[in-house]
Structures are given as C-alpha cells and as structure tokens.
Design a protein around this nucleic acid. Structure first.
Lengths: 360, 360
DNA sequence: GAATCACTCCAAAGCGCTTTGGATGCGCAA
DNA sequence: TTGCGCATCCAAAGCGCTTTGGAGTGATTC
C-alpha cells in the first residue's frame, strides 16, 4: 500500500516535501478540477465518498493550494496588514507593539490568515493604505497608534478597507471600529488614589500627547487634580517617547528642585523604571519618600513582579487587546455590511510596593 | 488639462483613491497590455516616447499592479517570511525581535518587499516552512532563535527556500547563510574584564541554553574563568527566559547566601534591571558592592543611558543585524546560485557605571 | 412511459499579470 | 527592386485557482 502510493507520487512528481497542484491532483484522482476544488472547500455538491477520496489523496500527495492563485480567483488575500508608522521623532516598534502583535497573531493563525507588517515613513502613510487596497495585499488593517483627529480613519472608510483601530481618535466623528482601554478613567482613578494617600505634588510623565491615548490620560490626571481642588502645574508635566532614559531624566530634574514632587504617574513601566533609577540615585527611598504609579501593559518581558507587584499600576493586557482586535477585524471581514464594533477595556488598579503616604 | 484627465478617469471608472488595472490602462493608451507591461517594467523593446506616455498615464490613473496576479505570473511573492516559534516555555515575541524586525522592515521597504509574520506552535514549525514554500507565500525566510543542532536548517536547504539565520547553530554541518554576534568572544572578554577587576565569584544569568546564542555565551564565560584559574561553579549559573523577574529572583537568591557573588554577567539588559532591583533591595550598592555586566542589544526603548552608560555592557545593535540580515536574504534571492553568505559582528565592550573593583 | 427532480460531476471562462513567438513597417545595402 | 535587420508593437498562452452554466445519471411521480 505504501509503495503503491509512493509509486504514484513518483509518477506524479510529488517527492517528499514537494507538492502537487490542483491539476495534478485531479488527474491523479480522475476527477475534474472543479470537483476536487469543491470537495476540498466543503461545497455540498459532491459525494461524500468522493470527498473523502479527495481528502485522502490531498493528504498523501501533500497538496497545498497556491495562495496567490487562490487570492486571484477569490479576490481575497487571506492576510491582515499592520502598518507601522516610522518617523524621526517617534518609533512605533516598541515593546507594546510586540505584545499586541503576538496576541493578534494567535487569532490570525487560528483563522488561517497571514499577518503582513509594513514599515511606512510618516508622510507616505496615506499612500501606503491606498496601495494595500489597490494591490490587494490584505483584506483588512489594524490601525496602530491613532493620534488626535487621525486622518487615516476617514481615508480607510472612504476606500472601503475593513479596519479596527487599536485606540480611538478624539475629534473623529465617523463611526468606526475600535478597541481601547479606558485611559482617561484609569488615570483619573490612579491619580485620585495618590491624592487620597495625601500627595499634592504629583508629576505626570506622559507619552507623546498628540497620540490619542496620551491625551486621554492627561485629561484623566487633570480631572482628578481638579476634582480635589489641586491646581494643574505644567512644570510637573512631561510628554515624550516613553523610554527609560526619559523617565530617568525627567525625574532627576524634578527631584533636584527646591520643591519636589512626591509622586510620579507614568505612562509606561519602562519609564517608571527610569524614574526609580533617578529616585535611587538621589538617595531617596521608593514609596517612602517618593511614590510611583504607572500604566502597565502587562508585557511578557516586563512583568510587574510576581506575587507582589513592583509598581502600583493600572494594568491592562495589551496582548489580550491584540487578540480581541484581530477577532473583531476577522468578523468584520466576514460580514462587511456589519456596523462598526467597539470595545472598551477597563484597566485594573493594582497596589504594589511603589506607593505610600505622602512624606510631609 | 485637468478636466481632460478627470474626464478620462471618469470614463475609465478611475475615481480618486480607486485604481485601474492593466487592461484598462492599456485601453486608455490604445496600446496592448504587453507593451504597457513592458514599458512599466523597464524592458528595452519599447520606444522611449511611448514609455513616458505610459508612465504618465499610470501615474494619472493611479495604476497599481495587483500583487497576487503579478506573483502568479512571475512565481515570486515579493514577501519575506518571519516565523516566530511559540511554545509554553518560551516566548519569542520579545523586545529583541521587535527591534530586529524594525531593522529588517526598513530593508524590505526599500526593496519593495512585504514582510509576513507567522506565529507557529513549536511542533508545527516544520510543517509551516513546507507550507510557505508550497503555497508560495514568501520568497525567503529569516530563521529566528536557532537552537543547537537546529533541524530547520536542513529542512530549508532541502526544500530549497532561501533563508538567512539570525544566529548560528552548533552541530549543523551544512553550509548556510547566517549573521551573528560573536557571543562567545564577547562573553569571554566581558568575563575577563570582571576578573581583571578582581572578581572571583562571578554569576552568569544566561538565556535558555538550548538556544545557540546562550550556549555560546556560556562557553565564553567558562573559557574566561578557566583561563584565569577560576573554577566553574554550577551554583552561580542560571539559564532561563530573560525577563526582569528572572534577574531579580536569581540575584536575590544568590545575594542571600553566606558567600555571595561579587559580580553578575547577564544576557539581557532587562534581566540586568532585575538584578539591580535585587541589589538595591538587599541594601547593597551597585558597582561598589556588586557589579553587573550585561549584553546590550541596543534596543530603542531600553537605551543603556545616554552620555554615561548605566550598565557596563557588551553592545551590539540587533536592529542593525536585522537590516543586514534582510539585505543578505534579498541578495540571496536575487542570485539563487550564490554560495551562502555569513557575517560575524563584534560586540563592543562599553564601560558604564555598574562595575567596579571587587569588594574584598 | 414520459416528465421531473435531485444528485454528481464537468468544461470552460475568468481573476490580472508576464512572456513567448511572431507581425509590421521602416531604412538601408546590394 | 529585393532582401535583410532593426525597432516597435501585439495576440495569445499561460500562472493555479474558483465558479458559472450545464450535462449525465438514476429514481420518483403522474
């Protein structure tokens, strides 16, 4: 039996790890390409006996449909695009993106979709989306890093390419699909937590505030301050790319002042690590002299401790968001007429060892 | 003139942000598809006047060749695959991968290639590569995270899919293309540096040692110890996924011993951050009481300080490696008969503020 | 016994591009 | 005038798949 099959394989030039195409497979089976194709794709108009014969043969001859031919015929690409804007000021290939992508990748893998990454210089972004649509490289797109009033949303709606935004865009009034963390609510809650611990001078080390998430976080922070009769001090607010060095420098400067902040709110655990370094270097003690509260994306390589969290944090798994976003997009592609879907995730306030009552 | 063009656009159903195909373009030009295709792709047998007419029209009508049709006709995919192995023990979507990818993406973008990411469960990896080959999704592959005696290398050679390994694989004797850091040399040099500072009990917090890079690093570390008459103490060696918590825990345990190590060699800056945390928590002072030396992949989000490096480090930009790997692969694809290319990068020893003479 | 129907299957026409194998017309030498 | 080479262009055949529009069976119905 084995040698029977392998003879046929030889005859049909199907060596191990090599592949036949539909035509060869159908000749081998003495069936038409139509029938074989239908059997393989689960269409009803084929006898079940035939179908299992076909399935068996496809297995034996190691048949793999050519994805480009399939795509040409069906008009679908079976791929999702992730466009990563690249600019000088600003680098989207960050740890957050990695984890989000990992989450999304899982969902794609399950659904048999591929994932295309494209790095695109800022100013060519619009063109890149048109390209993807026109050249048919992808069936849908995940939009990363939305800014305030992001023009990509209007563009993608116009050209009719399904998309899901990771985040939202303030000032955009079109309906669109998104998944986001309640950034404003989280930062309001976190700031309030510090205020209730007695802190009055609370610094905010935010991400770049043209980014929508950072804008919302600042709003939350400000709201909490105002709600408790505290004033907003621009000298205590920074907005930059969220690196370790940024956290270090900003904290070092603020801690060298006559009147120091007693607490820091950070937009990223990496920035918080930089702040911690500055605190140590200034000879101060974390939680006793200065508190840190940070947003925590639950990155796999930067877990916030294990049993007891290192930092008091607003936690929301970006990996989970990735999976959800991907599934939203896939279902949008499956039902193109469906209304936009939205999903708001809540961050969890987790008490760690980086906060304490304000030093008097 | 403008309205002339826009009339024709309307006539040919080319609305803004919409696209014509080759047939429409050739009808618009009163030329055959052959000629238009040749004009566009720079073939010589077309009059220069005609060519510029074609180019102009392609621009005006917003012509974008369908990549799947092109791929079907040429047999090329214009895409490169990055396969990310996923398992329970082990997570490749790490910050290093992100930066490598960013570097590679630049090269692809320049060459007009797309980048495909695929997450593949460990045990299906072999099948995944066969698939990519058979279905024609990619023209080549970057192999990430090679282990000792990595079977993927033989597989990819056999099925004839061009590939470049990021790293090497000990015990594989086939010729293949790779780009790697001199891990062994770097860790030997780094360890020697610590020894010369008087350290005798030097711990190694390595990555998972079935990974080739980690294996080589250990060899380098051991070589330096032996060269200086120091013994190898398994109690001072760890091998795990390189997270922050790993560094913290391992260092905490070792620093709680009767006889503590006086220096740590880490395989990742993230792990080093964890070690630093444990040092602080133990009430010790970095560089004075305990030294840290780490490998530094020069990740954009985890820069090792600015003017003065935080950690004494063996630095080698993984982003640069990504760009180089991509370019090697693209040239391999362009010249399939070419012999394998290899490239060994040297890590730079950078003196930071995390090392000092051994405390007596 | 003829008409109808459900069930299986097939031939052939695309999908949008590249590329092979001419066809056409021109200038130029013989 | 004929023949030849060269410069331009074109028709048509793929690439490997899906899908439309039947065609060929028996079985069922009247």
């Amino acid at each position: 039996m084995r040698s029977f099959v392998s003879n046929l394989k030889r005859k049909f030039k199907a060596l191990w790890a090599d592949t036949v195409n539909l035509k060869q497979l159908s000749e081998y089976l003495n069936l038409s390409q139509t029938t074989v194709s239908r059997a393989l794709n689960g269409y009803p108009e084929v006898n079940e006996t035939t179908r299992s014969r076909v399935l068996k043969a496809a297995q034996d001859l190691n048949y793999r449909p050519n994805i480009r031919a399939k795509g040409l015929a069906t008009g679908r690409a079976l791929a999702i695009g992730h466009v990563i804007p690249v600019s000088n000021q600003h680098e989207m290939v960050n740890p957050v993106f990695g984890d989000f992508t990992a989450g999304a990748g899982e969902a794609y893998a399950r659904a048999g979709y591929d994932m295309m990454l494209t790095l695109v210089p800022d100013q060519e972004e619009v063109r890149a989306y048109q390209d993807m649509r026109a050249r048919g490289t992808v069936d849908g797109i995940i939009v990363h890093g939305p800014v305030i009033n992001d023009e990509r949303i209007a563009l993608l709606s116009r050209i009719g390419l399904p998309f899901v935004v990771h985040g939202r865009s303030t000032d955009v009034n079109l309906p669109y699909s998104w998944i986001d963390v309640n950034n404003r609510g989280a930062f309001e809650r976190g700031t309030q937590f510090l205020i209730e611990l007695g802190h009055q001078r609370i610094a905010l080390l935010n991400g770049l505030e043209h980014m929508d998430f950072a804008f919302r976080r600042r709003k939350g922070y400000e709201t909490a301050l105002l709600n408790h009769g505290l004033s907003i001090d621009p000298g205590l607010m920074r907005s930059e790319e969220m690196t370790e060095v940024y956290g270090y420098r900003a904290a070092k400067e603020m801690l060298s002042r006559e009147i120091k902040p007693t607490a820091f709110v950070c937009s990223s655990i990496i920035t918080a690590i930089g702040v911690r370094r500055a605190i140590h270097e200034a000879g101060l003690v974390l939680a006793r002299d200065v508190s840190i509260l940070t947003h925590d994306d639950a990155l796999s390589y930067l877990e916030n401790g294990d049993d007891v969290p290192i930092f008091t944090a607003l936690r929301s798994s970006v990996r989970y968001a990735g999976t959800e976003a991907a599934e939203m997009l896939l279902s949008l592609i499956a039902m193109p007429k469906h209304a936009p879907k939205t999903r708001l995730l809540e961050a969890e306030l987790i008490i760690g060892r980086s906060t304490g009552p304000a030093a008097s």
